[in-house]
Write a protein that binds this DNA or RNA. Structure first.
Lengths: 143, 143
DNA sequence: CGGTATCCTGAAAGATACTG
DNA sequence: CAGTATCTTTCAGGATACCG
């Protein structure tokens, strides 16, 4: 949550996922204060999710852009899950504000939860939680 | 993001998903200040994600518990996506702190992103974003 | 265009004490 | 056990101004 728990973070990442890469584009599209965007991007770079890259298109002057790292791209399923929720529960009667489709085949994007054996898992299906190898406490009752 | 963007919200929801339901259990397990927990739960109830329910077990006095609504359960994929990310990128060498398995078959839980035609979508696969029916602006260049 | 520096404000977190 | 009330602190966000 320290990575993605701040209000603007996931919105900035959304634009990066969608190909918006330059400072002013981000600021304009998001409507975020520019100094806040500066801080947010710096934080994302610190966390290793984004890289600031200078580049130059032929005949143009140098520009900066913000590119997702692999760790940044790996956050996309979280955003897709948030979008899916919003499309179901928060979209107006007109429907979702944004559609994403698989660039290869045009199919719409779905986030699916299932178990390793291929069974689909519905939102309120019971899951069993048990301590993993990295657990810091042994069990339900620590002390 | 207004629903799940606050620092404690998703952590409270996690415990609710995992069956922790009583105020003191939540407070103890999360290490959250009790007044903060009060506010957070009230917010979740306001947002329609959680219901506060009085119940009485035979021979016991009345207690309150906090139960997820359907809209609350529908947030679980978001948390599962966050967990999956953390297990890959943030877990120590020992491994993930918590394992979830399908109560039916014991298979571990996976979050999968794919397209409607069944093709798997990897983190950095290109997606096409286009305005949906509920879009508030017509296109990349509004004005 | 692509930022940084300053200052201010508001909201949420935390500590602490109290109540039925 | 299950909270509420008060107070303080911290910090992200916004406005604004400035710079190469």
């Amino acid at each position: 949550m320290s990575l993605v728990g701040q209000p603007w973070t996931l919105l900035v990442l959304r634009d990066l996922f969608n190909g918006v890469r330059r400072f002013d584009e981000l600021a304009d599209h998001l409507g975020i204060a520019r100094n806040v965007l500066t801080r947010r991007l710096a934080g994302l770079v610190d966390d290793g999710l984004v890289e600031k890259v200078s580049y130059r298109e032929p005949g143009q002057r140098a520009r900066n852009e913000y590119r997702l790292t692999q760790a940044g791209w790996d956050l996309r399923p979280i955003l897709l899950a948030v979008m899916a929720y919003g499309d179901i529960h928060l979209a107006g009667p007109e429907g979702p504000p944004l559609l994403l489709e698989h660039a290869g085949c045009g199919g719409s994007v779905v986030v699916r939860v299932e178990c390793a054996n291929g069974h689909p898992i519905n939102p309120s299906d019971r899951l069993r939680a048990l301590p993993g190898p990295g657990a810091r406490y042994l069990s339900p009752t620590p002390h």
